[in-house]
Amino acid sequence: MSAHIDSVKTYALVFAGLIFLTVATTYVATVDLGPFSVVVALGIAVCKMLLVALFFMHIRHSTKLTKLVVLGGLLWLGILLTLTMSDILTRGALGVPGR
């Protein structure tokens, strides 16, 4: 199978982007953004993940099936987090006697 072979330049640019984002997230952590610091930190992490996944892991060249598998994995992680937090965040929210 003759896969797409990306140029070293592409990889180098992606790598530079990753280093830049690492420096950025480290710096931003020392700035008071209130509740947004989590959002920014995770936003940058997601960007880095996308760079690694799309370029280094070649997802942008891969089949629909691979993309589906990855999205499925993330969706299931979302299910685990969302439904558990639906309990954790609502403890005692409905004034039920005995709870």
Binding site: L83, D87, T90, A93, L94, V96, R99
Partner: peptide, 20 residues
């Protein structure tokens, strides 16, 4: 995968989550 909380109805899971 969306229903596991029905094992936790009496485990101090929140009532809201229980209903969901």
């Amino acid at each position: 995968f969306l229903v596991w909380g029905h094992h936790l109805f009496v485990s101090t899971q929140s009532v809201y989550a229980g209903m969901v």
